[in-house]
């Protein structure tokens, strides 16, 4: 069991970083998950160790989140965003020099979009992309049918795509009136 945890530590940490953002909080999350897995190791099924560890990571993350929700928190208010905001930079996607900056902006946008995904879609996509779990393993970890995992990941990617399109339109990379996102709108309404 100890070696099984050790083997999956990198993948667990990558997912934890995307859930917690702060390296210290991610490390705490992974360590707590590892300790919980070790304590309850008799419940592990040898052929489902990976999904089981990610299931524990998810449960620990939810528990920590609930604890934080109960604790009072002082929030520093951000400065008025509109007062001194600079106009958004404009990119030419055909310009090679702009491409790297554009990718960085896309990555920032996708990271933010990941945080905004509905919880189950977010976990499914994170487990797949950052945790290297197959669809089947995710269905075990999240205790849901395989088809549900597939549709969650598809919906999550559609939302990310919509976010990028919106970003591109707002920065003049594509015309504002262009709309390829009828499916995105439908999904968004369904979610709401």
């Amino acid at each position: 069991m100890a070696s099984a945890i050790e083997e999956r530590l990198d993948a667990l940490h990558r997912v934890a970083l995307r859930l917690e953002h702060e390296p210290a909080a991610a490390a705490d999350l992974v360590q707590e998950a590892c300790m919980r897995a070790w304590t309850h190791r008799e419940r592990a099924r040898p052929h489902d160790l990976g999904p089981w560890l990610f299931c524990i990571l998810r449960n620990v993350w939810i528990d920590r989140w609930r604890r934080l929700q109960r604790a009072p928190e002082f929030v520093e208010l951000p400065p008025d965003a509109g007062a001194d905001a600079e106009p958004p930079p404009r990119f030419d996607p055909q310009d090679a020099a702009d491409r790297a900056r554009l990718e960085q902006c896309f990555d920032d946008e996708v990271l933010a979009a990941l945080d905004d995904l509905p919880e189950q879609e977010r976990l499914s996509l994170l487990f797949h992309t950052f945790g290297d779990l197959s669809y089947h393993e995710i269905s075990v970890a999240l205790d849901c049918p395989l088809g549900t995992v597939m549709s969650r990941i598809h919906r999550a990617r559609v939302r990310l795509r919509a976010r990028l399109e919106e970003y591109a339109a707002s920065h003049g990379i594509i015309p504002r009136h262009f709309n390829s996102s009828r499916e995105d709108e439908r999904d968004g309404h369904a979610q709401a």
């Binding site: 530590l9 990198d10 390296p23």
Partner: peptide
């Protein structure tokens, strides 16, 4: 683009220190 961005983020996200 979204998939490429996810791949980049995946490769940039460090494993366990």
């Amino acid at each position: 683009e979204a998939r490429a961005s996810l791949r980049r983020l995946r490769s940039e996200t460090p494993g366990a220190p």
